[in-house]
Design a protein around this nucleic acid. Structure first.
Lengths: 217, 217
DNA sequence: AAATAATTTTAGTCTTGTCTAAAAAATTAT
DNA sequence: ATAATTTTTTAGACAAGACTAAAATTATTT
């Protein structure tokens, strides 16, 4: 059994590995968890003892198979709760994160699988991120960044790369949501900004924005 | 804001006050929380500082208005989650307690009130205990113990006085559930046992059982 | 390859919440 | 009313998890 803190470390390392591969630095974990590197060192020693990750001094850490399995369970819980909050309790996609962050630590063998049934086995959360099934298997979703879409091509928004409240509110304001059709009208090579068509309305978005929207085309 | 431990103390003292009135002893709190009296002394000092209870050395404690308000919030959360588990996630009434015990500590201004809406503002939990509304108001439910019902009288089961898994399973086995009609056929004055009619089936129950079933008649 | 800088670890401290053992107060029994 | 018992509090210790400051290691410059 893992403590709340241990679970948060596992989840953070899991997410960092998804971006940077194996060998996650103490510092990057500290940054993600908004704590100090020395605290991280203490905790990863403990987690190494529990065999959820491999740690060699000064070399960073990598999750073991067991560690990945544990982390996946937490991600599953987090994302299922997000679906519940949005679909059943009228939360908007920028409101769910903090609550799901708490709910993901509830321990009950039955709870999460029944929640899954209740929600109809959703395959993705409100931000378009895939929800692992009971066995930890993800459904692979074809997606690319909006910034890679060429001029005059059309894509469907299927996810976001940044789930911060600020970004999601920006998207809401501009009517960008999952399933939304987006056409790239033009791209400015100087700053990477682009003008896109949404709901027959033209808007211009920066490179930073198009780099955080996933589409399927 | 209160820590998980503080919330558990508040809730326990609240429940003890409901039974024994003001002036709850250190020992009884310790027993309820399965901890030591010395730990309780430490914690109630802290809670007295926070003005949720009044404490005078060797005199036991009493909740303040603020303390009662906080405790009521936790009770509300606990019971709403129980309804959710039973009505939406196929939990039986003997399975809900431990999970609700965790869920009651989730902090979100929006979550619990939206859950209330989603469940249709239920007035009682799966054990027949009343659920305080948003303002902490309880709906008074008329009820008395099955053991006080006279021979040949009929009552409707509206709650239980003991929510232990063992007791609830016993009730399930004998088809006793909320809303169930119960007729007292005879009462044995020697040991207080009684023979009752449920679903046109006669069963004999001990005094201990009839002392833990609430009915409306 | 030294020197400097950045990262990581260690050592020691703090807080929260718990515990045991012993002392103090209150209660019950004689 | 005093003695015996029970309850409560105090004092001191411990574990988890975090922090600061300093030391050790690794990485980057020059």
């Amino acid at each position: 059994m893992f403590s709340l803190s241990e679970e948060n470390y596992l989840k953070s390392i899991y997410h960092l590995e998804a971006i940077h591969g194996k060998g996650i630095s103490t510092n990057s974990i500290a940054k993600k968890l908004e704590t100090k590197a020395s605290s991280v060192t203490d905790m990863i020693k403990k987690l190494a003892e529990k065999e959820v990750l491999v740690y060699k001094k000064y070399q960073g850490v990598s999750l073991t198979k067991l560690g990945r399995k544990e982390a996946t369970k937490i991600v599953r819980k987090h994302r299922l709760w997000e679906v519940f909050l949005v679909e059943k309790l009228n939360f908007s996609w920028d409101e769910v994160h903090d609550v799901a962050e708490q709910l993901e630590h509830i321990k009950s063998p039955k709870l999460i699988d029944e929640l899954d049934v209740f929600l109809g086995f959703p395959k993705m959360d409100p931000h378009g991120d895939p929800i692992p099934d009971k066995d930890g298997k993800f459904q692979k979703i074809e997606k690319k960044l909006l910034s890679t879409l060429e001029e005059n091509k059309i894509g469907i928004c299927v996810g976001v790369n940044d789930s911060s409240s600020d970004f999601l509110k920006y998207l809401d304001k501009n009517n960008i949501s999952l399933g939304q059709k987006i056409k790239v009208l033009s791209k400015e090579s100087f700053d990477g900004s682009s003008t896109i068509l949404i709901n027959s309305k033209e808007i211009t978005i920066s490179k930073k924005i198009s780099n955080n929207i996933y589409i399927q085309s």
